[in-house]
């Protein structure tokens, strides 16, 4: 199945793109996508302990199962206001 990956702020800069499309196994979770991304782009891994994740624009956890067409977002610590 296919998912859209959204990256923001410094994660976007590190990846060189804010939106990527990736083919993942049917049983993929958010963790599966993150693991594949960080092996592709090791510099992203520094955010492992500080980022948040979202699926289809709702906050989610790494263990959440994904479905075809889902949008998975990886979010650095926020700094709004």
């Amino acid at each position: 199945m296919r998912v859209t990956v959204r990256l923001f702020a410094r994660l976007r800069d590190l990846a060189g793109a804010g939106e990527l499309v990736r083919e993942v196994p049917d049983a993929a979770t958010v963790q599966t996508v993150w693991t594949a991304l960080t092996s592709e782009m090791p510099s992203l891994a520094q955010y492992e302990g500080s980022m948040s994740v979202a699926v289809n624009a709702e906050y989610a956890r790494m263990a959440v199962a994904l479905h075809d067409g889902d949008e998975v977002a990886f979010l650095p610590p926020v700094s709004g206001g």
Partner: peptide, 13 residues
């Protein structure tokens, strides 16, 4: 404003 700084996905460069 405290909650904005905690949970709203906005970033400043």
């Amino acid at each position: 404003i405290e909650r904005v700084k905690q949970i709203v996905p906005i970033w400043k460069r």
